[in-house]
Each structure stands twice: as C-alpha cells, then as structure tokens.
Nucleic acid binder design. Structure first.
Lengths: 329, 329
DNA sequence: ATTATTTGCTTAACCGTTTTCGTAAAAAGA
DNA sequence: TCTTTTTACGAAAACGGTTAAGCAAATAAT
C-alpha cells in the first residue's frame, strides 16, 4: 500500500488518513497527495475487523418487486447513505426457512443492525430474539413480531381497515368482503379487527366467510376471487388488504363483467403510483412506505449510536385513504 | 470462540468447519456439535480479509422504486443467493456525482464484482474503467457504457422502438411522438433510431420536434405533455420510452379529455404489473427485467469464477410488445 | 526391528487496518 | 546546560479467521 511507497509505517499512514493530531502537517499532506493520486481507499473489512463494525445494515424483506417494499428501501437508503452506512438486501420470498438462514448468516457480524419485515410464514421469533441477545439492534417495520421487545414502525392497520370499511358502508355497501393473505401476521389481525369494528359500529354482523384468506399464488387467488364474485351472493364491497390482491379482484371483475363501482366497490391497500390510472381508478389505503423506511432506519441508527431511547410503543405512522373511482359512481 | 472451549486450536476448528480431510471424524463432530449448539457463524470479514474475497456483489442502480429495477434485483438475487453471495444495493438517484462516490467506495474491495446500470447523467466512464483495471469484474445491464469493454446485458432497444412505432403506424397513426428522458444514454439513442427507422420505412418523415426530451421531474413533464397534447397539432400516437412517462401522458390526456385510443394511441416501455388494469389498459413494450438481472449476475459470476468467456457482443434479450387497449379501438 | 508414510493436530504467518505504547528528536523550561 | 515536555513517528499487538508448514504419534512398508 502507500506505506512503503512513502517510506512510512502503516501506522503513520493510517493516522494521516484519519487526520490524527499526531501527524505533522507535512507528512499528512504527503500521504493525502499520494492517496489521491493512487485513488487509494482503505479496505473496509480490515478496518471493520479491527473496530468490530461493518458500517452495514441488513434489510430483510419478503420481496422487492412490490411497490411498498421498494419505497421502504428508498427510505432506508436515504438515511443509511447520510450516515455513511451500506445496505444489504436479503429476500425471504415469504419463506421462514430462508428467513432463518439469513438470520443465521447475520450472526457472523456481517451487519451492525437489522431492519426486518418478517415473512408471512414466520411464527417462531426465537431466531430473531437470539440475534438480539447477541447485541445486534433490530428494528421491525410493517410486519412485526409482537413478542419481541424492540423498536417497531408500523402504520395504523386497525384504523385504516376500519376507515376503509366505514367508507364502503357509507357509500351504500351492505356486504363487504375482506381479502387478506397471511393469517399469522399481526397486521392481518389488526386489519381484520378494524373491519369487524366498522361493521358492528354500523349494526351489521360480519360473517366469518366474508373474511377471505387468499394465497401468494395468483392462480389460486384467481379461482378464489372469481368464485367470490361469480357466486350467487357476491359482496357489493371488497377490501384488498394487500397490493397483490388488487390485480386479482380487478381481473376477476373484468372477466365476470362485474362493474366497478356499480356492482361492487373496491378499496385496495396499495402504494402503486398507477392507482389513479387504473380502470376505474382505485380508491386506496396508501401506506407511508418511504417514511416508514426512513423512521425505521433512524430508530436503528439511534440504537447503533448508543442513544437508544426505546419507547414502549411502536411508532405508528398513519396511512391515508385516497378516494377514487372504484368506490364512487 | 469455540477453540478454547474445546481445548483445540483455532486452526483445527477452522478446518473442521470446512470439512478438511486433515481432521478426524471424531473431533470434526465435536466441533460441529458445539458450533450448532452455540449457533456459531464465522466472521465473514475476517475470512474475507484472509482470502481476499467478500462474497458480495454490488448492484448500482439509478433508483429502486421502479418496477424494472425492482425486478432486476429479484433476478440478481436469485443467482447471488444460489452462489452464496450477498448483494449490496447502491442508488445513484440519477446523479453522476453519487455514482462516482459509490464507485470510489467500491475500490476498497467491499465487493468482488459490480453490476451497474449507469445514471442518466453519466458521460465520463473513466471511474468505471479504473475499477475494472483494478481487477474488479463489471457487468453492465440496460444502461451501458459503450466504450467499456466488458460484459453487457441489454434488450433490443432499437428493434423494440421500431416495432412500437410500426405498431402505431399500422393502427393508422400519422404522427407519432417519442418521449424519452436521458439524451446521453445509449438506450435512448437506440430507441430513437428504431423510431426513425420505422418512420422512414413507412415513407414518413419524422420531425425533430416529435422526439421529445422529458425530465425526471413530474411537474416539468406535466407541462411538456399537456403542451404537447393540448397544442393545435397534437400527435395521434405517443411512445413513452420510460415507465415514469406513462403516468405523465395518461394524466395529461385525462386532464385534457383527449381520448385514448380514440384521439391518441399510446405505447409505454413498462414493466408495471398493473398495465393491464389501466384505463385504458396499456399497450406495452415489456422488458425481460428478471431475466436481465439473472443473466447479468450469471455473467458476473462466470468472471468471478475465472471462466470468463467474454463474447464481444452484448447479450441481447428481446422485449415483447403486448398489445392492449391503448392502441386498439 | 527399522524406516517410511500417513494421520491429526498445533504453531505461526498472514490478510489490511487501527490503536496502544514506546521512543527518539525537537522544543521548552529551569 | 540540563531536565522536562512536546512532537512525530515506528513497533507491535489486535481484530477473527485461513492456510502452509511443522511435528509427534500411529500405522504401514521393508
């Protein structure tokens, strides 16, 4: 490296590059000049090894080809970049086996901290807990494990679902179906409860059969949804609590020639920028994805910097209901 | 670590974990058992430091909240995961200054190889060249630097644009406008040339003013596009060569009450899953984003594994024209 | 029985930094 | 002038692994 080119010790070079006061201005310049000339960059792993820091955070997500998660990454990156950290993207593809493998890998110290939105299969939170006990800060976002005591960033799932249902009912819907995917996720529970609340508030009884579990497979979903909308007592209102179900319900209606919003009104939990361009434009519950990413990252850095003022409650950032054509005539 | 817990040397432990033949079956089991029990994972940076490998590749992209790039990441991840590599996501936000900073950072050996789609501002390829000269394999995808001799994965931009134009003309369009963003990118040139080819093939002369440079700012684009569609001689066909311009043209038409496809037919280069749900559904040139990511990563690993059979020509994976409602009555 | 080989482990060097400590030379104080 | 302090640097250890080389004991060959 630079050291012997300049007839200096590596110690001196290292100190010169970090602007240590121990080094004379003259040699410091010499080092800096040559460093610039040779385009020298210190090996981050060597330095990381020495001071036990990787300056890297891992972001564990179910998938990336989803506009919610993509926007979250954007938010995380904004903060990480400012802090001089790097982000490692790890995808679980909704598999808890992969998730565990990823967490296991992370035990080695590859990342200083972890942001995670758990897979829909995840029931056992112990692998996460173990990492936490190892001293690695973890922040959950969106899909959290309720039994782990750490920082969390979520949106107001209960209230969003309640508002969505409320909106449909106020628009004249008599029977509202709720589509969801992952029965084990707390966000699903929250949303289901919000739905129930709105229904009972309107003196309407909800049927268990109107709370419909869908899958990650579009083909299966298509069967479920055409069954739902083609049946004799199809709902006149549908809430898709996950983005990927929006496509499904729209296609099913299109196919069955069920008019939106005439015969059925639809609300989607969605961050699609194209929601306003859909046919008809989609009324959405839009999650503050970018902000959630930023806040989650900020909380993580607060812990990494030692100033962890852990509040007991998760940080809740509200979603907004954007009314569009799919719920108004 | 495990070594002194087992009264063994670290060397023995290391070899046991890597299944070296030098270690007896008995002690190997002892090590493996304790490793499992303690959930031991070797520090990747320490080992990386020793064998000068990070088992990490960097993916440099302009942005991530774009369905094309999100799908590319998916493809890259599929390959990287199989090879036991990790992926570092770095966003340039279309700024060449940021891009240079990222490349500079990567000189330190943080990643063994690089996948890059250059920012729209990038004109000077020397920072990339320097990394390459340092021995770090680089693979371009989509937005390439033509003057750098390395593996590249692109789609058939010329042909796609030609086909798109051809399609509009065959549908009766007399005046087709081409919207693009980054004048300096080779993909823009290719697409513009393909457009010109189709026009001259139909004995139509294209006007320079129909090849319209847009920006990254939606507000500015909105002004440009309402100007275009609201003017006295608005085109009867529009090709949006980048996804983010699709929203712009749809909104402009919606606002000006210009009917699609009645008054103007629209084709978008887009990977939006919701293209079929737009109002009207969008005829697209869809890029094989996932495959491009996979192929680019595969090429990179081929180089990393030393079996670099560099073909002179970029790998071209064709896009497909999907005809939908925005170009047919 | 003696030598050669194999087996199974340890010692030590190494990767590229950072950091502590030591120490000359220079500057300051007595 | 002699001691003390400061300045500016180098030597060496450390980070946590990997790997080449060395070495004793067990096994095989002669």
């Amino acid at each position: 490296m630079l050291a012997n080119a300049l007839q200096l010790s590596t110690a001196t070079v290292s100190k010169a590059l970090t602007n240590s006061h121990e080094i004379s201005e003259k040699t410091r310049q010499r080092v800096l000049d040559l460093a610039k000339e040779l385009n020298y960059t210190p090996n981050p792993y060597a330095s990381g090894l020495r001071n036990k820091k990787s300056r890297t955070i891992a972001v564990i997500l179910p998938e990336v080809a989803d506009s919610y998660f993509a926007q979250v990454i954007d938010g995380v990156e904004a903060v990480a970049q400012e802090k001089g950290y790097h982000i490692l993207i790890r995808l679980t593809h909704e598999s808890c086996r992969k998730e565990e493998a990823i967490l296991q890998d992370l035990r080695g110290g590859r990342a200083d901290g972890i942001l995670i939105s758990v897979s829909s299969e995840t029931r056992d939170s112990s692998p996460i807990k173990e990492l936490q006990e190892k001293g690695i800060p973890i922040v959950f976002f969106d899909r959290v494990c309720e039994d782990i005591d750490t920082a969390k960033v979520v949106t107001d799932d209960f209230e969003s679902a309640r508002k969505a249902t409320e909106h449909l009912l106020s628009r004249g819907c008599k029977r509202v179906a709720l589509l969801f995917i992952s029965p084990d996720l707390s966000i699903s529970h929250q949303r289901i409860e919000g739905y129930k609340k709105a229904m009972t508030d309107h003196q309407l009884s909800w049927r268990e059969s109107d709370i419909i579990a869908c899958t990650h497979d579009p083909v299966v979903n298509h069967r479920i949804l055409t069954g739902l909308m083609g049946g004799p007592d199809a709902p006149d209102g549908v809430i898709a609590t996950v983005e990927k179900l929006v496509t499904g319900i729209y296609l099913a209606c299109q196919e069955l020639r069920v008019r939106i919003p005439g015969q059925v009104k639809v609300i989607g939990f969605s961050n699609l920028p194209s929601a306003m361009l859909l046919n008809p434009s989609l009324t959405t519950i839009t999650q503050p994805a970018f902000e959630m990413g930023k806040e989650a990252a900020s909380l993580l850095f607060r812990e990494l910097e030692g100033k962890a003022v852990r509040q007991k409650q998760p940080l809740v950032i509200p979603s907004v209901l954007v009314v569009r054509g799919s719920t108004v005539l």
